[in-house]
């Protein structure tokens, strides 16, 4: 299983290191974990995502996936097999004319034989619930289904890590729920590592750890509870809190409960203990 290590990474889009997008980012992502990365616009979240599978190479510092450095060109195909990246707009990453053709694109690039490709296409599409729509054109799918197709496309590469760069940003609440349910399943039952870059605070509670980026630096890094206990810092950065956290903070302020909650299952016991 692939651990990802970023050590003192700097990244700049221009040659000058003065306009840094990432500034001394060090991070360790253990295999099998679910990490959410949040931060204001321009904080470097998408750049961080692209560093993880070697699409971008850090201006200085090291990114290693399972011990393989992204600086070594020969490691890149291997790294990309391990770390799959999903972008925001599903329309911009669909290559095939049908759902199944698009899913087969990755395995074809791996040079796999026909039987193996068929197996991977069927497995991936059934994992995201699109097997019945395999012959349909991607243009006829809903936003949520297109996002699921994107996930199927990268799952067919059989990656160990899934990085989602605001992949739910363009979806309606129903579509977001569908995607989050799939991510939960992939993380809990299939052992995949999930790195979710998001603007929706309510999605972060599905994971176990939150990394907060601002101006290219890591401002907070800890468990969901640890990060949301520092709600003042988040608010200073202009970040929203999940609705349950917001509510429980208000209740805590009024002395109704003693701790913060992330969902109904954690709020109810807190209230019950006080009644």
């Amino acid at each position: 299983m692939a651990d990802i290590v970023l050590d003192n990474c700097f990244y700049s889009y221009s040659n000058s290191l003065e306009e840094k997008v990432l500034s001394g980012v060090s991070l360790r992502v253990e295999a099998g974990s679910f990490i959410s990365v949040i931060g204001p616009n321009g904080s470097g979240k998408s750049t961080l995502a692209k560093l993880l599978n070697g699409l971008y190479i850090p201006s200085s510092g090291i990114v290693e996936v399972d011990g393989l450095s992204t600086r070594e060109k020969k490691n890149i195909p291997q790294i990309r097999r391990k770390v799959a990246l999903l972008f925001q707009n599903p329309d911009n990453q669909i290559v095939g004319d049908t759902v199944e053709d698009d899913t087969a694109f990755g395995p074809e690039n791996l040079g796999l034989d026909r039987d193996e490709i068929t197996k991977r296409v069927e497995d991936s599409l059934s994992k995201v619930g699109l097997l019945e729509k395999r012959k349909m054109s991607p243009n006829t799918l809903s936003g949520g289904e297109k996002a699921r197709l994107g996930i199927a496309g990268v799952l067919a590469l059989n990656p160990e890590v899934l990085v989602l760069d605001e992949a739910t940003a363009m979806l309606d609440p129903e579509g977001r729920k569908e995607v989050m349910a799939i991510l939960q399943d992939l993380w809990k039952y299939q052992g995949k590592t999930i790195i979710l870059i998001t603007h929706h605070p309510e999605e972060t509670i599905y994971g176990e750890r939150i990394v907060v980026l601002d101006k290219g630096e890591i401002k907070l890094d800890g468990s969901v509870a640890e990060v949301y206990r520092k709600s003042e810092t988040l608010k200073k950065l202009g970040l929203e809190l999940p609705p349950y956290v917001e509510l429980s903070l208000l209740l805590k302020e009024k002395g109704v409960i003693d701790d913060i909650a992330f969902d109904s299952s954690s709020l109810c016991p807190l209230l019950e203990s006080k009644i």
């Binding site: 799959a84 972008f87 990755g106 690039n109 590469l157």
Partner: peptide
């Protein structure tokens, strides 16, 4: 970028 990520042209 998406095609690169899905290993297009890698072999």
């Amino acid at each position: 970028l998406a095609m690169d990520s899905r290993l297009y042209g890698s072999g």
